[in-house]
């Protein structure tokens, strides 16, 4: 068994709720693997089980060949993790947070000091290393946590929503770090996100997870191609009528939800004027039309019949960020 992570029918219940519902997958060494799903999909629960912080209700998994139930210590030594919620000691400096971690993982003093310096330079925090973490910005904290997670040179790194609540610039920066780490150190990375773009840009493969189940798993490229061509979105007050009119065989997929119709078809540019003309002839009003290359958002819509509820997600982010601030 040489998969970095092997998961078999992993399940976790909370009372009546099945948070993770019998999922199975394998992650190859050196991969960046994404778990993509909306709030409450079960991403964090999955990561918690794989990092031995939570016991599965049933099923099994190995990380670096070690069993997450029977060899907790072995798993813990070989993984690094950045939790969804902050886990730094704000009363300690950046350097002290790193040092504490290095001591917990029993890294000899000399090596520890060298590595801390290298990692702090990597995440561009060298000049702030002696400041208390409570004076750090959200992005700096996140970078520090990532550096800390790498200190004991784990083979597998878990990142639970690494860029949650960060501004686009910082997010871009972090993506570059993550990609570099993976490329240069060969670290296997498993990250969770509900940002489509993040999964698309970073991951070699993505598992789309909803209500505790994996509903699709492939490379972002294949997932998007699987949709069948370009995506056309039509807005109309009579979306129903559009859905009934367009039954042509070259339309590979058609979804209708709250006043919009989403179509997938090849060479959309050539078909679009014909479609509009036919709808106009039938007297069906069309408010707006857009054509785009498929995104993972469309893939999610295709598999679940719903959008990923970005609005709700954004809302939750704000609530969370607010709570984090309030705690300080």
């Amino acid at each position: 068994m040489n998969a970095a992570i092997h998961v078999e029918n992993l399940t976790r219940r909370f009372q009546n709720l099945v948070a993770v519902d019998s999922i199975s997958f394998d992650i190859e060494p050196g991969e960046i693997f994404g778990l993509l799903g909306p709030n409450g999909a079960g991403k964090t629960t999955t990561i918690s089980m794989l990092s031995t912080m939570l016991k599965p209700t049933s099923g099994s998994a190995t990380v670096n060949g070690m069993d997450i139930i029977h060899d907790e210590d072995g798993v813990r030594k070989s993984i690094g993790i950045v939790f969804q919620d902050q886990s730094l000691d704000e009363e300690l400096t950046g350097w002290e947070n790193m040092d504490f971690h290095g001591r917990l993982y029993r890294i000899p003093a000399e090596t520890r000091r060298k590595r801390i310096d290298v990692l702090l330079a990597l995440v561009e925090l060298s000049d702030r290393k002696d400041d208390l973490v409570k004076t750090f910005s959200g992005g700096m904290r996140r970078r520090l946590e990532i550096a800390r997670g790498l200190l004991h040179e784990p083979k597998v790194l878990f990142l639970d929503e690494p860029t949650l609540g960060l501004d686009p610039q910082t997010r871009n920066h972090l993506w570059q770090y993550i990609a570099t780490l993976n490329r240069e150190k060969g670290i296997t990375i498993i990250l969770t996100t509900h940002y489509m773009e993040e999964a698309d840009r970073l991951c070699n493969r993505v598992a789309i997870i909803d209500h505790g189940k994996i509903i699709a798993l492939d490379s972002p490229q294949n997932l998007k191609e699987g949709i069948g061509g370009d995506v056309v979105t039509l807005r109309s007050e009579n979306a129903r009528a559009i859905a009934l009119t367009l039954d042509d065989p070259w339309i590979s997929r058609l979804e209708e939800h709250d006043g919009t119709v989403t179509l997938s078809l090849k060479n959309a540019e050539e078909h679009i004027s014909g479609i509009i003309t036919r709808l106009a002839a039938k007297g069906i009003p069309v408010e707006s039309v857009s054509i785009h290359k498929p995104t993972l958002e469309d893939v999610f819509l295709c598999f679940t019949g719903k959008t990923i509820r970005e609005e709700e997600a954004d809302h939750r982010d704000m609530v969370r960020m607010f709570q984090r601030k309030a705690r300080r």
């Binding site: 912080m53 210590d73 813990r76 030594k77 939790f83 886990s87």
Partner: peptide, 11 residues
């Protein structure tokens, strides 16, 4: 403040 997790996940 979440720091306990950092300690508990260590070997």
């Amino acid at each position: 403040f979440g720091f306990l997790k950092e300690t508990l996940v260590a070997p």
